[in-house]
Simulated scan of single mutants.
Amino acid sequence: MITIRNLSKVYESQDKKVEALKNINLTINKGEIFGIIGLSGAGKSSLLRCINLLETPTSGEILINGTDITKLRGAELRETRKKIGMIFQHFNLLMNSTVYDNVAFPLRINRVPEAEIEKRVLELLEIVNLSDKKDSYPSQLSGGQKQRVGIARALANNPDIILSDEATSALDPTTTESILSLLKDINKKFGITIVVITHEMDVIKHLCNRVAVIEDGVIVEEGSVIELISNPQASTSKRFLADMIAKLPNPDLIQEHNPTEEVLRISFFGEDANKPFISQMVKQFDVEANIIVGNIESIQDVQVGSLLVKISGSKENIDSAIDFLNNHNLRIEVLKNGSC
């Protein structure tokens, strides 16, 4: 388990101070895939690099399995870092070394006997499906193959944790999908905790169990991926999910101060996606419903969607209809003032 308490990071240059992280508190459970998403400059890379002390926090604690690693020095810190693998955005491979030697590199640093190195490297190359590339050089590999080498290298010391720093942002969509599938398989097979930072919501949707949204060095939202997608609260979350949130094609559809009409945004997920709540509402409360726009997609085998619906009728019936929807665990937002 990773527990981050009151973590802050301030960068200083000459007379200027930049607060990259501000009082971060997070708990990342053992064996989960945890995502950290934010815009460029939000602080996500600083947070990731603090977790393995590539960046020294200005204040706060980082506990890994109960030990505050910010207080470790020398041999103790080196031993702890062995159990934290890292995957980089631009691969960070040794260009003049073969695939085999790139994966063997961290083992040689730790003075592992060559016989053990050979056995481990060959095992890892099989895991990442690169056994036939062991004698190739990085310049002879595709981007996806280079990242597979990076993943194998991150696994070399049998880590408990893998930190992934924008590992797919330099890859095409098809290759990205294969890398995400590989990371999922590794997590499932070995129970390794994986912490992923990204600015790509597709990565979060397809890979992570839980997610934190970081904005200007502050965690503004945290929860399960399904919760975030079905009911985003922070402006950054809504921005990342803009293509999934049903929007008004015409703001004039909202008529202020008209008690006989309301426009609702209805968010739903799971089994609720297949239930006829709208038709039940119309029959039961004598209102008319016009579906303006909507979308639905499958996220980690869970249906998640959003509808914009205009309902018309008496104010009393509209209020009862909205209560009905709320009582069935749908998330209802009554749109006002041209909001979308």
Rank of each mutant, 00 (worst) to 15 (best):
T56C: 02
C50P: 05
T56K: 15
C50V: 00
C50D: 06
N65R: 09
E79L: 13
I64M: 06
M86P: 11
T80L: 12
E76R: 12
I84H: 01
I51V: 09
K83N: 11
R73N: 13
T70S: 10
N65Q: 14
E79K: 15
K83E: 10
C50I: 03
L54Q: 09
E76K: 13
K82D: 03
R73H: 14
G85K: 00
K71C: 08
A75L: 15
E55F: 09
I87H: 06
T67Q: 13
I64N: 00
C50A: 05
G85H: 03
T70M: 01
R78D: 07
K82R: 15
T67P: 00
S59C: 15
A75E: 15
E79T: 10
T80G: 03
S59Y: 03
I62F: 11
D68E: 09
G60M: 02
T67E: 13
K71H: 08
A75I: 14
L72K: 09
M86I: 15
R73M: 12
R73E: 15
L77S: 04
P57E: 00
R78H: 02
G74E: 07
G74H: 00
I64A: 01
L77M: 10
T58H: 08
G66R: 02
R78Q: 07
I51S: 07
L53T: 02
I62Q: 04
L53Q: 08
S59D: 14
D68H: 04
G74C: 04
R73F: 12
T70Q: 02
E79P: 01
T58V: 10
I84G: 03
T58G: 13
T67A: 07
E55Y: 04
L72P: 01
I62P: 10
E55G: 09
I87S: 04
N52I: 08
E76D: 14
M86K: 12
K83I: 02
T70C: 11
S59V: 02
E61S: 13
E76C: 01
I64H: 04
N65H: 12
R81H: 07
D68R: 02
T58I: 11
I84K: 04
T67K: 13
G66F: 04
I64T: 06
T67L: 05
E61M: 06
L72F: 11
L72G: 07
L53D: 01
E55Q: 11
I84T: 08
T58W: 12
N52P: 06
K83D: 04
